[in-house]
Design a binder for these strands. Structure first.
Lengths: 239, 239
DNA sequence: TTTCCACTCCCCAGAAATAGTGAGGGGAAG
DNA sequence: CTTCCCCTCACTATTTCTGGGGAGTGGAAA
């Protein structure tokens, strides 16, 4: 039976942390306190870039990036679609690429049990906070039972810190879309043609075009499709 | 000085709750346990729809909807841009509409102190969890100090429940895309033209078109833009 | 083994989106 | 009261996308 560790010092340490190196240190402390194999915070950037920190072996992290496992990893997909924390056993490993990925992960020091918490920030920011261990299903259930709540909170704080660092680095000048621009992009995202959208909004197609173009400009998008993709992934419009 | 209330029974009640009415009941219990004026969970939908539950007077809620305060409320805007919980005193009340809104809110039973926690789910889902009270800044600081962590966790669980209800109402079957289709849609979402995508994938433009069409078909999309919007919002592709 | 499905290639005509201009009215903020 | 942004409308030429055909390979599953 698990005896629950006191995590309040970890939370305090997390609160006072500065910089990614600090998060790295906290994740090591947390891993030790929880007596599991790995703790990983993984920021998945909308541009496909990614950074994170945690206790995975450096080899594996490099391999993950090199092999573009991000596109294969079913945990990422599963978390992206859900709000609940995700147990690795519950995601879809049926794809061939996914099974190859899993085998490779296990070979590189990743434990068989995982529990990943999706965290979302403004502008479509998305990250994962994962606890990983090598043990039986029963032990893992007990672990989740014991620390589930705490992990959610800690995931929240990890992401908060990561966002703070990011903000310091690049204060993004996100210029908001005007209501009409939002309308226009929303209808386009729903699959309507420009003519239909113009009709729906009771404006001329020419006017509609102006909105689309100014939205494109504001979003720094190369074309309408890009604008809609950006607006969607930044949470500026919702389908 | 605050003596911290034990919130674990509330969390358990929340865990076992079914339906919006249940959430309503939990928010009342929580308000009483915290000894504050109001607790509100507010799901904000971009389409302008919104639903929520909490302890605000029904009059005020109706007024909020009728007057379209959603578009004015600086707390909404502030939370939408941030990951941190937001104290109402810290948001931008400089706009005229915002000040009118504030005056109206205070007149309708809303307390002067507020603490709102943004929560985000898949597909750009966004909600706010708010604690509201009428008291001095000092008392409020102490309250936030005491219950800040708990409120984050509770906000998370409120949103989880709300999403569960939503899911039960509209379960959608997703048919997976082939790797090539994912590639094609991903590049298109990044703003490349068909010619550029074809070149990037080292295939002919004709072939590329076949992928796009089959992806469109699988997604039940009306056109390419729609397909990309659907794929993005279903988490099938990541930018 | 046969039957899928994923992947690759090709032509053509019509529909739709983009790029380059332009203009005027209204409202909010400084 | 001026400036800035939002909303609305218009024309033309060019590029890009869509929809309609058809055809051949290889791998995986039934």
């Amino acid at each position: 039976m698990y005896r629950k560790a006191d995590l309040s010092p970890i939370l305090e340490e997390l609160d006072a942390t500065e910089g990614l190196d600090g998060l790295q240190a906290v994740s090591i402390g947390l891993r030790d306190a929880l007596e599991i194999d790995h703790i990983v915070y993984h920021w998945v950037d909308s541009a496909g870039e990614q950074y994170g920190c945690g206790t995975y072996p450096a080899d594996w992290i490099q391999r993950y990036i090199d092999k573009e496992y991000l596109r294969v990893d079913p945990v990422i997909v599963g978390c992206f679609q859900r709000f609940h924390p995700v147990d690795w056993k519950a995601v879809d490993w049926s794809g061939k690429a996914a099974r190859v990925f899993l085998a490779d992960a296990l070979k590189n020091g990743v434990g068989n049990q995982g529990y990943s918490i999706p965290v979302r920030g403004p502008s479509g920011q998305f990250a994962l906070f994962t606890a990983n261990h090598n043990c039986s299903d029963e032990e893992w259930s007990e672990f989740k039972e014991t620390y589930g709540h705490d992990l959610i909170l800690i995931a929240h704080y990890f992401n908060r810190k990561a966002l703070d660092f990011e903000e310091n680095r690049s204060p993004q000048p996100v210029r908001a879309l005007s209501p009409r621009e939002v309308d226009a992009l929303t209808f386009l995202a729903l699959g309507y043609s420009r003519a239909q959208v113009a009709h729906s909004l009771s404006i001329s197609e020419h006017t509609l075009r102006v909105y689309i173009e100014s939205a494109r400009f504001k979003l720094g998008a190369l074309n309408t499709t890009h604008a809609i993709a950006k607006a969607l992934s930044q949470g500026l419009i919702v389908m």
